[in-house]
Nucleic acid binder design. Sequence first.
DNA 1: TTGTAGGCGTTATCAG
DNA 2: CTGATAACGCCTACAA
Lengths: 351, 351
Amino acid sequence: MANILDIARKAGVSVGTVSNVLNHSATVKESLRKRVLEAVDAVGYQPSQLARGLRRVKTNMIGMIIPDITNPFFPAVVRGAEDIAFSRGYRLILCNTDNDHAKEIFHLNELRAYLPAGLIVIPSNFSDLTEQAESYRKMGSAIVCVDRLPKHWKGDAVTADNEGGAYAATRSLLSLGHRRIATITGPLHLTNAAERLAGFRRAMRAENVVVAPEYVQEATFERYAGYSKTMLLLRMIPRPTAIFAGNDLIAFGVLQAIREAGLRCPEDISLIGFDDMEPAAMLNPELSSVSQPGYQLGTTAASILIDRVDGDLSPAKQIVLQTAVQLRHSVVPVQEEEEAVTRRKKERAAR
Amino acid sequence: MANILDIARKAGVSVGTVSNVLNHSATVKESLRKRVLEAVDAVGYQPSQLARGLRRVKTNMIGMIIPDITNPFFPAVVRGAEDIAFSRGYRLILCNTDNDHAKEIFHLNELRAYLPAGLIVIPSNFSDLTEQAESYRKMGSAIVCVDRLPKHWKGDAVTADNEGGAYAATRSLLSLGHRRIATITGPLHLTNAAERLAGFRRAMRAENVVVAPEYVQEATFERYAGYSKTMLLLRMIPRPTAIFAGNDLIAFGVLQAIREAGLRCPEDISLIGFDDMEPAAMLNPELSSVSQPGYQLGTTAASILIDRVDGDLSPAKQIVLQTAVQLRHSVVPVQEEEEAVTRRKKERAAR
DNA sequence: TTGTAGGCGTTATCAG
DNA sequence: CTGATAACGCCTACAA
């Protein structure tokens, strides 16, 4: 592969001039500039990113650390990040952590050896990244957190409005008359899971509905966890009339459990998920869900990161993107039951 | 960040010795070795991958070029590749091409500047990568193709048995009495789409069923394409009794179209997809599909690639992984119709 | 405006 | 078995 010296010789100039032309770092006489450019694409020369990175003590690589690309919510985030990164001349190094904090730390450490311009991280369970972030900051690289926040995180972050989305979802169940609403949450040490639960509770409180403790089931963000927690919920007396699932994978498990228990959704139990993954609308029944802008999460994070690289020194940004409830067939008004009928009668009598 | 000279001084040896210890490149006296190792983790030293890459003229990065991480089939492949790569000390640089050949070529060119150990490519439309592969080979990097093959590709490749899977899927429809079977294919310049069609045709031929040309609809591998092609098919007279979809996204669109047309799956039309994505089994009805081992595609490709890096000079490997038909509720025996009834009577009479 | 030279951190070669 | 030293390719002072 040709190097800068070859180009210099070919163009009859010095390497400094070639470098100046390539990096627009100084004005070069037009005639020389042209000769250099000609030489460059005659040979198809491209500067070595390794040498450049070594010299500049910084590369144009961005480490992207996520729990698992196989989880259907993350590809959109990654794609968003890659699109922005690519358009601004950066490339993404992808690392999966499986929500394993040790693996996360390991990647964080290893990536340092590449002098990345920065890191986009979807933190794993139990993460505390303050130390790592400090170490990266010292070497001039930024870190932006996405989707969830590590403990004590004070740096740049882009998240979705989990609390608001959960609140709105729960409100729509309440407004259809549901009172016995259960929720199956993700792991509550994850900020997004905890926020969704908080939104759920706030909505219930707003309607003065007391949430039975056993109606709040903590699970993992996986289909099977949703399935088994639902099996528990279905055995409870009284049985919930609606379930708010911490994400769509959980909701898939809920549906499966309802079906296997010989019940029907939505007739017996209404259901809302979170994430609004593509297949949600294809399910039977079509799954209601809270949509969140995965792609924008990625683009926003990458933009912030690269702005930092470019010298943005403004205070830490904590951006929250909007979510939206998508009501579909999995939600119907609560079915009349003795209890409800009795209450209604009382209410009428009271007027 | 500490460098090798710091370590050398700290351990009271020369940089050469440190390098030898770190790379097992020469036997070092145990006492020195120990001192070096101590110094290394006292400072938390890690060798600069940039300097190393510059010197060795090869890095431990692997470029992974895929059409779109957002397409639900690819994450598993990427994950498989990342797992193997990571376990063998390599990292993945992810690039999306959107099936745009120009973008593919662009990535191929750009990545060269990082001196990657090799490339794993899921080729985009119309690809001919022979030239690029040659150029990479010259600089000592390997390329492995996955899932689809570029034109004239003679190098390492890992694909799924598309032809066999399609054949088996079609056979199962045929064995249930279906004869008017339509297929909606992916873009036929993609080898996997073409192979699936070939399997379909072979199965039909084996049963002496003539395939009406209008029953073969070429589309893209997207839901909407499946939707609109199905709308066409449903208007045909006679209408097909079964559809074999080129992939699950297409099948999702087929389902949607069937529903919107006021028909039912499987009562009116049986359906089989391809890929067996996670949500397939959650649909209404549960979607039958041909499963292919996405994760293994990735692991196999990465293994082959790294073996090449490690000096494997054996002839090009073209590995084909097995697929399997998963029959679910979306497929039922063909429903009795006048035509069929008539034919049966004839057959009975003939005995 | 242009050219020269030093050094980024590592590995490989070659004496000792 | 160990140490010194010359590249790898680039960028950037600094000098002209």
